[in-house]
Simulated assay, not measured.
Amino acid sequence: MEHRFVSIALFTALIAALGLVPSFQLMSGVPISMQSLGVMLAGTVLGAKRGAAAVLLLQVLVVIGLPLLAGGRGGPGILAGPSVGFFIGWLPAAYVTGLVVERWRARSLTLVAAVAALLGGIVVMYVFGIIGMAWALERSLPQAALLSLPFIPGDAVKCVLTGLITNAVARARPSYLMSRQ
């Protein structure tokens, strides 16, 4: 039981630490950062429930004011900015990513984790992200969708990295990969 809590805290810290990797903002005001890689990994390694718990813990810490998002952002104001949808979407993204890995029993964990990251970390997250950008920037959904297009190539690379890293974790520490248990 204690191992589960430690794993959740560890992945919360990983997502926060990935916010320290330099990010940059596009015209939409939404930063391109490595934190979504941490969200994807939380799902593929910890599984749906624990991965979502790690993200939820980070979200609570951010909303209460800790500067754990890319660029040192934090506080309730994050809920009014153009990245609000992506921030909120992290939770269902981690859950869906983990659920796909838990349920899809293919030979290649690398492929399963990469596809899971694509479904959760791009499809699900972008649904929330586009809606949030449309609301915060007072744009139509198609306009917000166009603003999110520049993020897709980098997020696709993160999906591949998620597959490779998840497989490496499974080989190095098979007992740690909770999403497959």
Rank of each mutant, 00 (worst) to 15 (best):
Q59W: 08
S36V: 08
A13V: 03
A13H: 03
R50E: 12
L18M: 13
G51N: 08
P22N: 10
P22L: 08
G29N: 01
L14E: 10
K49Y: 10
V30Q: 01
L46I: 02
L61M: 13
L37Y: 07
T44V: 10
V21L: 12
Q25S: 15
F24Q: 14
L26F: 15
I32N: 07
I32Q: 12
P22W: 11
L57D: 11
Q25E: 14
M40E: 10
L37H: 03
Q25D: 08
M34F: 15
A54I: 06
A16S: 09
V45M: 03
L14F: 12
I32C: 07
L26T: 12
Q59A: 09
G51S: 10
L37R: 02
A42E: 00
V45S: 05
S23L: 13
L57F: 13
V39S: 01
T44N: 08
L61C: 10
L46N: 00
L18N: 12
S33C: 04
L61K: 04
P31W: 01
Q25I: 09
A13F: 01
S28P: 08
A42L: 03
I32H: 06
A52P: 09
P31E: 02
L57S: 15
T12N: 14
V30S: 00
K49I: 07
P31F: 04
K49E: 13
I32V: 15
G47R: 02
A13Y: 04
A16H: 07
M40W: 02
T12A: 15
A54E: 01
G43D: 05
Q35I: 03
L56C: 13
G29V: 05
V45A: 07
L58E: 00
M27K: 09
L18Y: 11
L41D: 03
L56M: 13
T44Y: 08
Q25V: 13
G47F: 03
A48E: 07
S36D: 00
K49Q: 12
A54K: 09
S36L: 03
A42V: 00
P31S: 00
V21S: 06
Q59E: 14
A53Q: 11
L46H: 01
S23H: 14
R50D: 12
F24I: 12
Q35D: 01
V21Y: 11
L57C: 15
A16M: 09
G47V: 09
A54S: 15
S36G: 02
F24G: 14
L61W: 04
T44G: 08
G29R: 02
M27F: 14
V21D: 11
T12H: 08
A42F: 04
S36T: 15
L37D: 05
V21F: 13
